[in-house]
């Protein structure tokens, strides 16, 4: 299995705060991976480390087996669209295509022109005057013109309306099918991810909470409901309880299954990707701490 991205104990600090800490993961080739987490979880930090825009303070990251920081050779293999698609707003799409051709060793001008023509993007209008959706499409087309083997997208659809979001995802999936590029995209919009992504990385408070192929993760987790008393004992078939909520009589648990049949006392349901992400993002300690800080009972 070819690995596109490997991180081992990767960390990055801004001042005294770790933006990313003890991050270890392996992203296999050919995947469309979602990097999910709330704002400030460390998503952009991880992407910036992967593209070589910043240098790790701990551990290491490798892309196609090489260290990305200061590595221009490797940069040719990576397409990167930063948050809010910061492309030069005074330049026209036409000028950006020409500029891209001068700045990149590998550059498929025909591909980007065809793509922008199909999308109905006017070549001569300054990018700053295009709609948000069109600007995102221009940024994606420019990133793909490098024919990258890894495409990193930081919140590509966060600022787009639902129609532009769908059109962007259509373009992205079409080009993934064509090129076989591995994609790592960060997002805090969970809705469309289930159909788009086959690999999931959940980040929260600078740490990786969960990572793996979507299918395995869904298969490996279950939602249980049953009498509250039963929750106090270890449950057959359950490796770990990820998230629990209780009423006076009933407990609802999201659990990691260990593969054995689950205790028949519990009603077992499959989980959706959204259930899973939310369970790993909900942090009980934060709630407790904030209740303490506000001086109210949790």
């Amino acid at each position: 299995m070819e690995l596109v991205l490997e991180a081992d104990g990767l960390g990055r600090r801004y001042g005294g705060t770790w933006a990313l800490r003890e991050c270890s993961l392996r992203l296999p080739a050919g995947r469309v991976a979602a990097l999910v987490g709330p704002n400030g979880a460390g998503k952009s930090t991880l992407l910036h480390l992967a593209v070589g825009l910043s240098r790790p303070d701990a551990g290491e990251v490798r892309v196609f087996g090489h260290v990305p920081y200061g590595n221009t050779e490797l940069l040719a293999e990576i397409g990167f669209v930063a948050q809010d698609t910061p492309i030069y707003r005074d330049l026209t799409p036409e000028e950006l295509v020409i500029m891209g051709g001068k700045l990149n060793r590998r550059w498929d001008a025909t591909l980007v022109r065809t793509r922008l023509a199909q999308l109905g993007i006017p070549p001569g209008r300054p990018v700053g005057k295009l709609s948000g959706g069109q600007r995102a499409q221009v940024a994606l087309a420019l990133a793909l013109a490098k024919r990258p083997r890894l495409l990193l997208l930081d919140e590509p659809v966060a600022s787009l309306d639902p129609l532009a979001r769908r059109e962007f995802m259509q373009s992205l999936m079409g080009s993934v099918a064509e090129s076989g590029t591995t994609v790592l995209l960060s997002s805090h919009i969970l809705g469309d991810l289930e159909r788009v992504c086959d690999y999931l990385i959940v980040l929260h408070s600078a740490e990786v909470k969960l990572a793996g192929p979507v299918e395995e993760l869904l298969e490996g987790h279950r939602q249980l409901s049953g009498p509250r008393a039963a929750g106090a004992r270890p449950i057959a078939g359950v490796a770990a309880v990820v998230r629990a909520s209780h009423t006076d009589r009933q407990s609802t648990l999201l659990v990691r299954a260990d593969g054995d049949p689950i205790d028949p006392e519990w009603t077992v349901r499959d989980v959706t990707l959204e259930d899973l992400i939310l369970a790993y993002l909900t942090d009980d300690t934060v709630t407790r701490a904030s209740h303490e800080a506000w001086g109210v009972p949790a």
């Binding site: 995802m169 999936m173 993934v176 099918a177 469309d192 159909r195 788009v196 992504c197 086959d198």
Partner: peptide
């Protein structure tokens, strides 16, 4: 993949 905006691996 393009028309449904889904992962080509699914297709």
């Amino acid at each position: 993949a393009q028309s449904l905006a889904i992962n080509p691996n699914t297709v």
